[in-house]
Protein backbone atom coordinates (compact mmCIF):
# COMPACT_ATOMS: atom_id res chain seq x y z
CA UNK A 1 0.00 0.00 0.00
CA UNK A 2 2.20 2.82 -1.17
CA UNK A 3 -0.76 5.24 -0.96
CA UNK A 4 -0.85 5.24 2.83
CA UNK A 5 2.93 4.89 2.89
CA UNK A 6 3.16 8.10 0.89
CA UNK A 7 0.86 9.89 3.31
CA UNK A 8 2.89 8.67 6.29
CA UNK A 9 6.14 9.71 4.61
CA UNK A 10 4.66 13.06 3.63
CA UNK A 11 3.53 13.89 7.15
CA UNK A 12 6.85 12.69 8.58
CA UNK A 13 8.94 14.85 6.25
CA UNK A 14 6.70 17.87 6.81
CA UNK A 15 7.10 17.50 10.56
CA UNK A 16 10.88 17.16 10.14
CA UNK A 17 10.92 20.44 8.23
CA UNK A 18 8.76 22.13 10.85
CA UNK A 19 11.04 20.95 13.64
CA UNK A 20 14.04 22.45 11.86
CA UNK A 21 12.41 25.85 11.41
CA UNK A 22 10.93 25.61 14.90
CA UNK A 23 14.43 25.26 16.33
CA UNK A 24 15.52 28.31 14.37
CA UNK A 25 12.50 30.20 15.70
CA UNK A 26 13.35 29.37 19.30
CA UNK A 27 17.02 30.26 18.99
CA UNK A 28 16.47 33.37 16.87
CA UNK A 29 16.74 35.65 19.91
CA UNK A 30 20.38 34.75 20.42
CA UNK A 31 21.42 34.15 16.87
CA UNK A 32 19.93 36.99 14.85
CA UNK A 33 22.30 37.62 11.98
CA UNK A 34 20.95 41.08 11.17
CA UNK A 35 23.52 43.88 11.44
CA UNK A 36 21.77 47.12 12.40
CA UNK A 37 24.21 48.98 10.22
CA UNK A 38 24.31 52.69 10.86
CA UNK A 39 23.76 52.13 14.58
CA UNK A 40 26.61 49.70 15.06
CA UNK A 41 29.17 51.53 12.95
CA UNK A 42 31.73 51.45 15.77
CA UNK A 43 31.49 47.77 16.52
CA UNK A 44 30.71 46.46 13.04
CA UNK A 45 33.33 44.00 11.87
CA UNK A 46 33.13 42.66 8.34
CA UNK A 47 34.08 39.09 7.65
CA UNK A 48 37.50 38.11 6.38
CA UNK A 49 36.10 37.00 3.03
CA UNK A 50 34.27 40.23 2.30
CA UNK A 51 35.55 41.94 -0.86
CA UNK A 52 35.50 45.69 -0.33
CA UNK A 53 38.34 47.04 -2.41
CA UNK A 54 41.89 46.11 -3.37
CA UNK A 55 44.60 47.61 -1.16
CA UNK A 56 48.33 47.28 -0.92
CA UNK A 57 49.51 46.92 2.67
CA UNK A 58 52.59 48.82 3.71
CA UNK A 59 54.66 48.08 6.78
CA UNK A 60 55.99 50.66 9.27
CA UNK A 61 59.05 51.42 7.10
CA UNK A 62 56.76 52.37 4.22
CA UNK A 63 57.69 49.21 2.35
CA UNK A 64 55.33 47.18 0.18
CA UNK A 65 55.71 43.79 -1.46
CA UNK A 66 54.95 44.74 -5.07
CA UNK A 67 57.73 43.87 -7.50
CA UNK A 68 55.96 45.42 -10.49
CA UNK A 69 55.61 42.12 -12.31
CA UNK A 70 52.27 43.27 -13.83
CA UNK A 71 50.63 39.89 -13.36
CA UNK A 72 47.66 41.58 -11.70
CA UNK A 73 47.33 43.98 -14.62
CA UNK A 74 47.25 41.04 -17.02
CA UNK A 75 44.83 39.07 -14.88
CA UNK A 76 42.31 41.88 -14.57
CA UNK A 77 39.47 41.19 -17.02
CA UNK A 78 38.36 44.78 -17.42
CA UNK A 79 41.49 46.80 -17.04
CA UNK A 80 40.92 48.18 -13.57
CA UNK A 81 44.62 48.00 -12.77
CA UNK A 82 47.31 50.00 -14.48
CA UNK A 83 50.93 49.80 -13.42
CA UNK A 84 53.31 52.59 -14.30
CA UNK A 85 56.82 51.25 -13.91
CA UNK A 86 60.33 52.19 -14.73
CA UNK A 87 63.79 50.61 -14.88
CA UNK A 88 65.85 52.27 -12.23
CA UNK A 89 69.22 51.60 -10.70
CA UNK A 90 68.86 49.70 -7.52
CA UNK A 91 70.95 51.54 -4.89
CA UNK A 92 71.97 48.30 -3.14
CA UNK A 93 73.11 46.10 -6.01
CA UNK A 94 73.81 48.89 -8.50
CA UNK A 95 71.99 47.04 -11.27
CA UNK A 96 69.09 48.24 -13.36
CA UNK A 97 65.83 46.83 -12.03
CA UNK A 98 62.10 47.02 -12.78
CA UNK A 99 60.37 49.09 -10.11
CA UNK A 100 56.83 50.40 -9.84
CA UNK A 101 56.18 54.06 -10.00
CA UNK A 102 52.43 53.98 -9.52
CA UNK A 103 50.04 51.06 -8.99
CA UNK A 104 46.80 52.60 -10.23
CA UNK A 105 43.53 50.92 -9.28
CA UNK A 106 40.18 52.05 -10.73
CA UNK A 107 37.66 51.12 -8.05
CA UNK A 108 34.83 52.34 -10.26
CA UNK A 109 35.62 49.69 -12.86
CA UNK A 110 36.41 46.84 -10.49
CA UNK A 111 33.95 43.96 -10.38
CA UNK A 112 35.50 42.47 -7.24
CA UNK A 113 36.32 39.22 -9.06
CA UNK A 114 39.58 38.79 -7.12
CA UNK A 115 41.65 37.49 -10.03
CA UNK A 116 44.40 40.05 -9.42
CA UNK A 117 44.80 38.93 -5.85
CA UNK A 118 44.97 35.30 -6.91
CA UNK A 119 47.49 36.17 -9.58
CA UNK A 120 49.84 38.12 -7.30
CA UNK A 121 52.93 35.98 -6.65
CA UNK A 122 54.14 38.03 -3.69
CA UNK A 123 50.84 38.77 -1.91
CA UNK A 124 51.38 42.46 -2.43
CA UNK A 125 47.67 43.27 -2.85
CA UNK A 126 44.88 42.00 -0.63
CA UNK A 127 41.15 42.59 -0.05
CA UNK A 128 40.10 45.31 2.36
CA UNK A 129 36.81 44.98 4.17
CA UNK A 130 35.57 48.57 3.92
CA UNK A 131 32.40 49.13 1.94
CA UNK A 132 31.48 52.79 2.36
CA UNK A 133 32.93 53.68 -1.02
CA UNK A 134 30.56 56.37 -2.21
CA UNK A 135 32.19 59.65 -3.28
CA UNK A 136 30.92 62.79 -4.98
CA UNK A 137 33.14 62.57 -8.02
CA UNK A 138 34.20 59.52 -9.90
CA UNK A 139 37.79 60.70 -10.16
CA UNK A 140 38.10 59.91 -6.44
CA UNK A 141 37.57 56.27 -7.35
CA UNK A 142 40.90 56.10 -9.15
CA UNK A 143 43.37 55.23 -6.46
CA UNK A 144 47.13 54.92 -6.33
CA UNK A 145 47.79 51.90 -4.17
CA UNK A 146 51.47 52.38 -3.39
CA UNK A 147 52.17 55.21 -1.00
CA UNK A 148 54.49 58.02 -2.08
CA UNK A 149 58.20 57.29 -1.56
CA UNK A 150 57.46 53.71 -0.65
CA UNK A 151 59.85 51.01 -1.78
CA UNK A 152 60.00 47.28 -2.19
CA UNK A 153 60.56 45.30 0.92
CA UNK A 154 63.90 43.53 0.90
CA UNK A 155 63.83 39.81 0.23
CA UNK A 156 60.49 39.67 -1.53
CA UNK A 157 62.05 39.03 -4.90
CA UNK A 158 64.25 36.15 -3.71
Amino acid sequence: MSYFGDIYKGIKTLLTGMSVTGKYFLTSRKGAITQQYPDNKETLKMFERFRGEVVMPHDENNEHRCTGCQKCELACPNGSIEIIWDRQIDPESGKKKKMIDKHIYHLGMCTMCGLCIEACPTDAIVWAQNFENSVYDRSYLTKVLNQPNSKLKAGVED
Binding site: Y24, F25, S28, R29, G31, A32, I33, T34, Q36
Partner: peptide, 10 residues
Protein backbone atom coordinates in the same frame (compact mmCIF):
# COMPACT_ATOMS: atom_id res chain seq x y z
CA UNK B 1 8.05 39.45 13.04
CA UNK B 2 7.47 35.68 13.01
CA UNK B 3 8.95 35.45 9.52
CA UNK B 4 11.98 37.35 10.72
CA UNK B 5 12.46 35.07 13.69
CA UNK B 6 12.18 31.97 11.53
CA UNK B 7 14.89 33.37 9.29
CA UNK B 8 17.15 34.54 12.13
CA UNK B 9 16.44 38.18 11.38
CA UNK B 10 15.11 40.94 13.61
Amino acid sequence: KVAAWFQLRL
